[in-house]
Design a protein around this nucleic acid. Structure first.
Length: 635
DNA sequence: GAGCACTGC
């Protein structure tokens, strides 16, 4: 591995560290483990990893694997990243928000460290910046230059090279077997049906080897699974069986594991996967890939500030990544369910995420790093001016920025330190004043994770009954607090019975199963909770509780989320007050089928129509009282 | 009466 060569090349002299970033947690952990093994050293000594909630590094660590998001957080405490001599950014072609912000920051840091080294002539390895936490404040500090290595699987190494002032590009041949790519002669109007037909064609006409089909989401996977099963019954009795294994991120991990098992003897494995199989996981046994050429992608409208998920054609780079999955273990075949001329029309690569998401968090972090001119910041690909302005405006409304776009003190500084959506960070600060920080901490933890409730279609009624015991007539926020506290009580009980940690987790897992709660999500929420609790305590905030005073808590929610208020209209729909959009209550809300005059919400999603989720009913008069700066002029 | 790809601090 490259980092070992760098280590042997003397890049860790004077206690300096080689940092390697990855977009995903699993990659950081698995590569670190492998390299530690190759070095014949225990993980956490010379070689270690650091990811959120899990740090295996020590003072002795010289080769440090981490997620790119974590390195960004480190930069808030050490803006010159002074402990690193080299930083390797791996999988840069994926262009996640974190990668893009990191590249911009690294370019700036490299420039600063270069200046310092030249200006001072002599290089020191112990810069003192304890007083400061911004790039600007580090002027005049003596520090060695920073070396950067960007690793990318894309063909456009040139854009990375250009961005870093014509840096040298080295091509390394990957280990990959040849993949024969086939196209359709006619355009396919129904890609789901075309996938179905292709699966059976391969099964009946091609040699042994498993099939991987890329679909856009859970629903498509589930319906195709049913269609395959139906048609498989019509197969001749002497043909081999088909074994279907779905895989997508929200599928419980025990079921995900099926995709990694070999098919039963005499059967062919057909893996129906979302994008998870494109990069995140590698499934063994695959010889045939079916690519309908579609993907579900996040989209963002900077004018309304609304995020949505839409199904769009893949990019060329994505199609190549998918076909490559057929050549991991031997020569393979890829069936693209569109015409070759259509491939030529595809975009070269996927639009970087930074151009299609809300930038509030990115802007806040850059501000905290002392980068004041966001519009002028040297992004590799600049988000639209509208999008940046929208985020700046949002941060001013939240009080994180002053009217002249400076990070406010203490609110903005505190918000930047919290690894949360800025609106949730603000909610915590507000709740301190309302003396209900304890409740709000639970709410933002629960809202920060994937869906807490688990409702399988075949046990809908049972799941509904289970949720009843947690429901609050005030709304979803208090319902979430009830769930969190009930889970904590379950853990407390087994703790009192002197159970070991492992037994306690088992008890919680069982409790979740019985109550139709997603264990993985709850576990995650508890991790977030304990991390944020540490942060707010460090800030000197008190873990106050409002006890049974739910009016107080609802008033606090109003003060925190006043930007997300909606009024009921005569026709039963709601009007989002900040944007004027017409929205509906999402049927998953505990308030669905009730008629609150006014609600605050935490999520606005667009699917078949505009839905608001995670609602609590409030008194409309509270808006003018608690957010006069925003609502005083209205009515 | 809906349904959400994938990451990450």
């Amino acid at each position: 591995e490259l980092p070992q060569f760098l280590y042997d090349g003397g890049f860790c002299q004077d206690g300096k560290v080689i940092g390697i970033t990855q977009p995903r947690r699993v990659a950081a952990v698995t590569v670190a483990k492998r390299v530690a093994e190759e070095c014949n050293d225990q993980l956490g000594r010379k070689v270690g990893y650091s990811i959120r909630f899990d740090d295996s590094t020590s003072n002795a660590t010289r080769i440090k694997y981490m997620t790119d998001g974590l390195l960004l957080r480190e930069a808030l405490l050490d803006p010159l990243l002074s402990k690193y001599s080299v930083i390797v950014v791996d999988e840069a072609h994926e262009r996640t928000v974190h990668t893009d912000v990191l590249l911009g920051l690294l370019k700036k840091v490299q420039h600063s460290r270069c200046l310092h080294a030249n200006k001072n002539g002599k290089i020191s390895d112990r810069p003192d910046h304890s007083q400061s936490s911004t790039l600007k404040a580090c002027q005049g500090i003596k520090i060695a230059p920073l070396k950067l290595i960007i690793m990318s699987a894309s063909l456009d190494a040139k854009c990375f090279s250009d961005y870093f002032g014509g840096a040298k590009a080295v091509h390394i041949q990957g280990r990959q077997y040849p993949v024969d790519t086939l196209y359709t002669y006619q355009p396919e109007s129904d890609y789901l049906d075309a996938t179905l037909v292709t699966i059976f064609q391969i099964h009946l006409e091609e040699g042994p080897g498993d099939i991987l089909a890329f679909l856009t989401g859970q629903e498509e996977i589930e319906s195709l699974e049913r269609l395959i099963q139906e048609r498989a019954r019509q197969l001749p009795a002497d043909s081999s069986k088909i074994w279907i294994t779905p895989i997508y991120s929200s599928l419980p991990s025990e079921q995900q594991m099926n995709a990694f098992k070999p098919a039963p003897s005499g059967a062919r494995k057909v893996v129906l996967a979302t994008n998870i199989a494109e990069t995140s996981v590698t499934i063994p046994g695959i010889k045939y890939v079916i690519d309908p050429g579609m993907v579900k992608a996040r989209a963002y409208n900077p004018v309304t500030g609304m995020e949505s998920l839409i199904i769009i054609p893949v990019s060329k780079a994505q199609a190549l990544q998918r076909s490559g999955r057929a050549g991991r273990e031997g020569p393979g075949k890829c069936f693209r369910l569109f015409q070759e001329c259509e491939f030529d029309k595809l975009a070269e690569s996927t639009i970087p995420e930074i151009k299609r998401c809300n930038l509030a968090n990115v802007v806040l972090q850059l501000k905290a790093l002392g980068i004041d001119d966001i519009i002028g910041f040297d992004f590799m690909e600049k988000p639209s001016r509208t999008s940046i302005l929208k985020s700046l405006e949002q941060l001013i409304l939240l009080g994180a920025l002053t009217d002249d776009y400076k990070l406010s003190d203490p609110v903005g500084k505190q918000m930047a330190r919290l690894p949360l959506d800025p609106m949730y960070s603000k909610a915590l600060i507000v709740s301190n004043e309302f003396k209900c920080l304890e409740e709000m901490l639970i709410v933002v933890s629960m809202l920060s994770v994937e869906s807490i409730f688990f409702t399988p279609r075949e046990k809908l009624e049972e799941a509904r009954a289970a949720r009843k015991s947690f429901e609050s007539s005030e709304g979803d926020h208090i319902t979430l607090v009830n769930v969190y506290r009930a889970a904590a009580e379950c853990l407390e009980k087994s703790k009192n019975a002197n159970a070991k940690e492992k037994t306690m987790e088992k008890a919680l897992n069982r409790w979740c199963f019985e109550n139709f709660i997603n264990y993985r999500s709850l576990r995650h929420a508890r991790d977030v909770h304990s991390q944020i609790q540490g942060h707010v305590q460090q800030m000197g905030l008190n873990l106050s509780s409002c006890g049974d005073d739910m009016v107080q808590f609802r008033r606090c929610l109003t003060a925190a989320f006043f930007l997300n208020a909606a009024m009921r209209q005569p026709d039963g729909s709601f009007r989002a007050l900040a944007t004027g959009q017409s929205v509906q209550m999402h049927p998953s809300s505990v308030l669905f089928r009730t008629k609150p005059d006014c609600v605050i919400f935490n999520e606005l999603v667009r699917t078949t129509q505009n839905y608001v989720k995670n609602l609590t009913r409030i008194d409309p008069l509270w808006l003018a009282e608690l957010a006069p700066q925003y609502y005083a002029t209205e009515d």
